[in-house]
């Protein structure tokens, strides 16, 4: 299989349009606080998913209470109202320190629907996590799929 180059071509075109000088002048930390805040939200997701994933993988003993608390935390982290941390122009073609693709802000972006899909998967995990290990295992997969759906479309590869 060859790479899906469309996204990087679009990103390259944007860099070309805005010009190197523009990009350089915006690399001095513009939107640095916003980028830090949204990455902090991702870190909260990863931390709580780590607690749940360790149980699902069998690395840690299943603990219904700990699982329920981690899933509640995940839902709480998801519920934080964050559009303020995603201003237009804070994409990886315009500023440093982010892999967020310009496609997030494109007119045909379906990031809202993808965010909603994640919310639904997290709510289902919240309902299942404290029930038993099988329920936890079954509900964590769709959450992973919702993460992947967004990262596939909207995050640059390393």
């Amino acid at each position: 299989m060859f790479s899906k180059a469309r996204i990087s071509v679009a990103a390259a075109a944007l860099v070309a349009m805005t010009g190197v000088g523009f990009a350089a002048s915006h690399s001095q930390g513009e939107f640095a606080r916003e980028i830090k805040a949204r990455q902090a939200q991702m870190t909260l997701y990863a931390f709580n998913l780590g607690i749940l994933g360790a149980m699902a993988k069998g690395e840690a003993e299943y603990d219904a209470e700990a699982a329920a608390l981690a899933a509640n935390n995940l839902a709480a982290a998801k519920s934080i109202w964050m559009p303020t941390a995603w201003p237009a122009g804070s994409d990886n073609a315009s500023v440093e320190g982010t892999r967020a693709l310009p496609a997030i802000w494109a007119a045909d972006s379906d990031i809202g629907a993808k965010s909603q899909a994640m919310g639904e998967a997290v709510a289902a995990l919240q309902a299942a996590a404290g029930t038993d290990l099988e329920a936890l295992r079954g509900a964590i997969g769709p959450v992973g799929a919702s993460c992947g759906a967004c990262h596939k479309s909207f995050r640059a590869e390393e």
Binding site: K4, A46, G141, V143, H151, K152, E157
Partner: peptide
């Protein structure tokens, strides 16, 4: 699941 050992997720 797409989760790495650090609970980042696969992209691209």
């Amino acid at each position: 699941t797409g989760f790495t050992p650090d609970y980042d997720s696969a992209g691209g």
